[in-house]
């Protein structure tokens, strides 16, 4: 379990990183925390010619709070975000979901942006970003563009990132007054890939329900409060729509039934936190 040979590139600026990606394109993989990528390199699951290590690009290590969102740079580790004392007020869902991401030791190096860029259908952070309607900032030598989370994640480990683009930041909308959120995850062991993860946001007139681990990307649906009386039917139909996939730990049917059984408690949690 040792990586194949590769060229190691360590840019000092975003511009250099963009140049490197422009040169290597599909042949390069971006490494921020490396907590998923190096494991895959060790297992020889990934065949890449170059690693672009962005962990030491100062521009990417910023956490910026604007009036509308929390912008997290691509080199910011999960634990750095989690340790913000004000996180529970800023992005309450992130404060609830982050402790489920890997373990303390991997969160020390693993980044928020890396998890979102990897687009694992079971991951907590892509689900959270999708549920909150956050954005992904992409940069290349051609320029900068900003995508909505729903536009960014295209499917299983697949995103709208072009091979020459670098995810430089993600933007989580700040929690609004009166909103409440809920998060629940089922995994075989603490810290494992989720079998199913659910997130909910209760807004004044509607509930946003997000489901990870069932389809090839997070699924987000908005349920008007007026429809909550029919929640079981709605969730039942949603589970049937999402279908689910099979692996050794869960059948698709089990995944669907988890959605059916857990959507309500997660929504209740969101409602109970909302004003």
């Amino acid at each position: 379990m040792k990586p194949r040979p590769f060229t190691y590139l360590r840019p000092d600026t975003v511009a250099e990183a963009a140049e490197a990606l422009s040169e290597w394109k599909e042949a390069a993989r971006v490494m921020a925390g490396g907590q998923t990528l190096i494991a895959m390199l060790n297992l020889r699951l990934v065949d890449c010619e170059a690693i672009v290590d962005i962990s030491r690009v100062p521009e990417l290590s910023a956490i910026t709070r604007t009036k509308t969102h929390l912008e997290i740079g691509a080199a910011v580790t999960q634990n750095r975000v989690l340790s913000r004392p004000e996180l529970a007020q800023e992005v309450p869902l992130l404060a609830k979901a982050l402790p489920w991401v890997g373990h303390f030791q991997t969160r020390n190096k693993g980044t928020v942006c890396g998890s979102i860029a990897h687009a694992d259908p079971s991951s907590e952070l892509p689900l959270s970003l999708a549920l909150l309607g956050g954005e992904v900032v992409l940069r290349s030598t051609r320029g900068t563009r900003v995508l909505k989370a729903a536009e960014f994640q295209r499917g299983l480990l697949s995103t709208a990132r072009e091979p020459d683009e670098l995810v430089t930041a993600v933007r989580f909308p700040l929690g609004a007054k009166g909103e409440g959120t809920g998060f629940r995850e089922v995994a075989r062991r603490h810290g494992d890939f989720a079998i199913v993860s659910l997130a909910a946001r209760a807004r004044a007139d509607a509930i946003d329900l997000g489901i990870g681990g069932v389809a090839d990307r997070p699924a987000v649906r908005t349920i008007p409060r007026a429809d909550l009386s029919r929640l079981d039917d709605i969730v039942d139909a949603l589970a049937a729509e999402l279908g689910g996939f099979e692996d050794i730990h869960a059948t698709a049917r089990y995944r669907r039934d988890l959605v059916r059984r857990l959507a309500r408690p997660v929504i209740d949690e969101a409602l109970s936190c909302s004003a």
């Binding site: 490396g34 190096i38 030791q105 991997t106």
Partner: peptide
Amino acid sequence: EHGVCGCCTVLLDGAASRSCLTLAVQ
């Protein structure tokens, strides 16, 4: 060597990290 067992954990600038998920050059 895939980050699960924790045996190789070291402090990297004080932060507990998997040394098997870290390149020496890093």
